[in-house]
């Protein structure tokens, strides 16, 4: 690859990142600001899609697929169904009387988090910290993520894996029991 095309690729990645970031943040704000709940749910889908795009930029392609299937495919459909089932009394999504202090707290939290993030000396994954061989290993793991992920999930984290499957079973049974007519 010639240097100019590498620079072009970096520029394209940069532009794609900013497009995704902007649409994610704007639609997240729309989720909490729009009064019509159905439209808010549609904007939530845009936000979830944006996060899936960021997962791809972070080379977590499996997670992007999981995000698309579970969040965009299943959870948002559930939310829209619930909105439609409870809609006849719905007059938008009103706020509490204390929304101003809550907004203040959120902005303070955000400012604090951004300050901390930009002032921390991160132990970055760069060629200074690792030797040539270790860098090669890391790149191999990142580009071959799914098999490594699978072996970790079923070896190192197998106990949590089983616990989560039990939790899912319990949640499904509980949801069925709750919505069953009597």
């Amino acid at each position: 690859m010639t240097p100019t095309s590498a620079a072009e690729n970096a520029l394209i990645t940069e532009i794609i990142f900013w497009i995704i970031a902007l649409s994610t943040v704007v639609s997240a704000i729309a989720v909490v600001q729009i009064r019509d709940l159905f439209r808010a749910a549609l904007f939530l889908i845009v936000t979830l899609l944006g996060v899936a795009g960021m997962f791809i930029l972070l080379r977590a392609e499996f997670l992007a697929g999981v995000q698309l299937m579970i969040y965009v495919g299943a959870i948002s459909v559930l939310i829209i169904f619930a909105i439609l089932m409870t809609r006849d009394i719905d007059e938008g999504s009103p706020s509490h009387s204390f929304r101003i202090p809550v907004a203040l707290i959120s902005v303070i939290f955000m400012g604090l988090a951004i300050y901390v993030v930009s002032n921390t000396d991160w132990n970055l994954l760069s060629s200074q910290a690792l030797t040539e061989d270790q860098m090669g290993d890391v790149q191999a793991i990142l580009s071959n993520g799914i098999p490594n992920l699978a072996s970790m999930l079923l070896r190192d984290f197998v106990l949590a894996f089983e616990a989560v499957s039990l939790l899912l079973l319990a949640a499904v049974l509980g949801a069925l029991a709750l919505v069953r007519g009597r």
Partner: peptide, 12 residues
């Protein structure tokens, strides 16, 4: 932060 604001300020 946006989610925190929504979770604390919404009534629906």
């Amino acid at each position: 932060a946006i989610g925190l604001y929504g979770a604390l300020s919404k009534r629906h």
